[in-house]
Design a protein around this nucleic acid. Structure first.
Lengths: 110, 110
DNA sequence: CTGAATCCTCTTAGATACTG
DNA sequence: CAGTATCTAAGAGGATTCAG
């Protein structure tokens, strides 16, 4: 691992980055790590995200296997989003990033 | 931390993401975690990056305090890049991302 | 309620040519 | 060697409108 070359398409670093690249991917995963949520619930909590973008980023996370989308055939529609097992496995990384960000902020202010 | 709201400008998750958002940021930090490198050395190892982009992303990492730029006033010019203390503190996160990416790949292939 | 379809804007990457 | 300057193309975010 120490000598992995990052210009390959299979570089783990690049693979991971492509998945979390979207502006709202990390916050979405963070919210879902707190439990299953409906579409509108997510949108409320990510106050500044627009509907279209939320839809797209959720679809991408679903395609990448981190998020599960459960559709209830009702009227009005009800859709619930949750983390898959793969999505759950990302939580420690999420925490590592968050902790580093917090340290970074306090460092910058010092 | 558990109830942090990610729409704030001071959300650690968002702060961290803004820093590592560039396409080549992670690979650059990875290479520099292996030791001090000169500009051309980095460019060789990140085989597909163009000169202009490498310059810009290095400048951004420098501005964000992760990378140190040491200029030797010689002819021809010699410039060395290395991680600052803040940059070093990011290495564990880099490893966490890399390990997750590796697991993700093997999971997808299984 | 959830989300598809458009359209618009802004940022980024990438390529190329030039410079101290 | 290590940039700077400029241009182009692609993509992502965002706002709005329409639909099941």
């Amino acid at each position: 691992m120490a000598k992995s070359v990052c210009h390959e398409g299979t570089c783990p670093l690049v693979v991971a980055q492509n998945i979390i690249a979207g502006k709202w991917k990390l916050p979405i995963l963070w919210k879902l790590s707190q439990g299953t949520k409906r579409f509108h619930e997510l949108q409320k909590q990510l106050t500044e995200i627009s509907q279209g973008i939320l839809t797209r980023q959720l679809r991408e996370l679903e395609r990448d296997g981190l998020v599960h989308r459960e559709v209830y055939k009702e009227v009005p529609p009800k859709v619930e989003y949750s983390l898959t097992e793969t999505g759950q496995s990302f939580i420690p990384v999420l925490q590592a990033i968050s902790i580093w960000g917090r340290d970074y902020l306090s460092r910058r202010l010092a």
